[in-house]
Design a protein around this nucleic acid. Sequence first.
DNA 1: CAGCTGATGTCAGCAACTGTCATCGGGTAC
DNA 2: GTACCCGATGACAGTTGCTGACATCAGCTG
Lengths: 191, 191
Amino acid sequence: MPDMGRWEPNARGRLERAALELYIERGYERTSVAEIAERAGLTERTFFRHYADKREVLFGGSSALQELLVGTVARAPEPATPMEAVAAALEAAAAVLQERQEHARRRQAVIAANAELQERELIKLASLSAALADALRQRGVDDSSASLAAEAGIAVFKIAFRRWTEQAEQKDLSQFIGESFAGLKAVTAGT
Amino acid sequence: MPDMGRWEPNARGRLERAALELYIERGYERTSVAEIAERAGLTERTFFRHYADKREVLFGGSSALQELLVGTVARAPEPATPMEAVAAALEAAAAVLQERQEHARRRQAVIAANAELQERELIKLASLSAALADALRQRGVDDSSASLAAEAGIAVFKIAFRRWTEQAEQKDLSQFIGESFAGLKAVTAGT
DNA sequence: CAGCTGATGTCAGCAACTGTCATCGGGTAC
DNA sequence: GTACCCGATGACAGTTGCTGACATCAGCTG
């Protein structure tokens, strides 16, 4: 791809695509930022203007996901319990992810192969949890319940998402989330 | 501390102590590995022989904690439910941490001030969760329940631990864990 | 006392990331 | 239409985390 020109549009999109391709082709560790930038028709310095580090380029969508979760909790009907509001938010996220399933699988395979990327994913999930808890408090839920419902919801999501990406069949993420919620309820009931 | 000599004992202990001191004094980011090594009477290269990276030096005790959790789950009485086994494990961990409370507080303040360290802590907690789930499966718990009980337990621990380190009074970590378990049960019940 | 072994020191080097300044393209004012 | 302005990019030097390769040293073993 010679000479993309300095002002080609969608620099971020090109960087994200180039990075995912290279991480799949040669692995995360054996890919240098200079290579990503080159494939995107940009320089290394410009990469770091768009993304704080080499990991972040795989998580461009996480802020949108966070907004979706927070918005769904905020707009949950009044009588909903904290866990119901969280469940609704996860269902909304599941619907979005269900679309780009193949992209999600590829991306997850890259993350599963590298510890640094797993760390970044975990802190993104922690950020989602914190945002969910905030949204719940906004609804008048007490501090402790808000944190617990948010953490429990994210735990459910983690497990459901893993099963979804690892499955051979074609069950919906939404189903896995439902099953995991039921499992959590069962496991916490008899304590 | 001039000329510690090449063969002073307890190199790891000296490195951990020096690192924590410097992270407190000047912050994690403004501390170089060379400085840590110097204060410990060693070289930078030797630091990296003991710890994989600059973060890991703060997490030397995590493998012992993991063994404690796994061992407690394994030795839990036969009729214990998954969550009861997990709760017993967390209580055992709490007893250990309750001892070095001041050290835990200092350490946590450093971690709270830096995102890289938070990432590392999160992956350590994820590792604890995976180990707990394994120990539960060893007891015959089904896959899904094992993962869910482990994740829920770690979520409870995270929240209890945070409250414990932030409190002004002197309530025991064990109490916070009990309260958080009760809160989780309440929040998951009415879904 | 000679040799072996494991821990440490020394040195060179790569890649991630940052600060600084120059440069360019596209829009705006007049 | 020309001059100007501004945000995005390039160019380049520098720091630091981290690694590989080889030398060196203390203590043990025979």
